[in-house]
Design a binder for these strands. Sequence first.
RNA 1: UCUUACGUCC
Length: 269
Amino acid sequence: VFSWNVAIRGYSESENPRESLVLYKKMLQYGGSRPDNYTYPFLFKVCAGLVLRCLGHEILGHVLQLGLEVDIYVHNALIHMLVWCGELEAAHKVFDEGRVRDLVSWNSLISGFARSGQARKALELYREMEVGGVKSDEVTMIAMVSTCAQLEDLNLGKEFHQCIEESGLTLTVPLANSLMDMYVKCGNLEAAQRIFDNMEKRTIVSWTTMVMGYAKFGCLDTARKLFDDMPEKDVVPWNAIIGGYVQAKQAKDALALFHEMQASNVKPD
RNA sequence: UCUUACGUCC
């Protein structure tokens, strides 16, 4: 089982994750070793990534036969799979009826609703989690801050920001990026800039969020300055800055940048 | 050997 799991994991992280499903079938055919609680999280993750809803349910059948649904890792991976296949109600049901539940279960479900635009549902679950006395972590906060961004609810966003500072959570890069994004979407560029300035490590996402923010509000010079300072660029910041010039009806600048982008080996999308 | 989190357009 151990070697099968290593191989399945290897493929699941490769550029050809389908191979791990082929391996799983072989594993079942050879019958020498039974898949275990380490095998299934990888398989569910692959189904989630490829949105293989039917296969996911088939695999769920195997899990139930083996009685592995009570393993917390398998359970959480199952919720993750259902969420990514768009079956949020089913995920919620599994979550509610499951015998096991931890912070990862909450986070998977809450993030799922947040990502699919169901902000109210995400908030509702968060409240439920609080009432249940479960402590949030950075992952929970990313989901909640993104929810505020989606609702463009600055006050609620500030509340969560304060909550993060008071609870002693670490301002991880993704969390700081989410906060910046929330402030940008709520129109508070100053607050976003403050977070950006205080970050010790910035990723391409951090830079892009600020460039987008300034471009969105027509501060093209500021956006351009940041853009030029970016240590690396992918297609997203290029789109943002070009889009900014287009909106400002600066067609020639937009076109010039478009050619510059192609010259720098970034493919337009 | 195991599960959850960030950016544009689409």
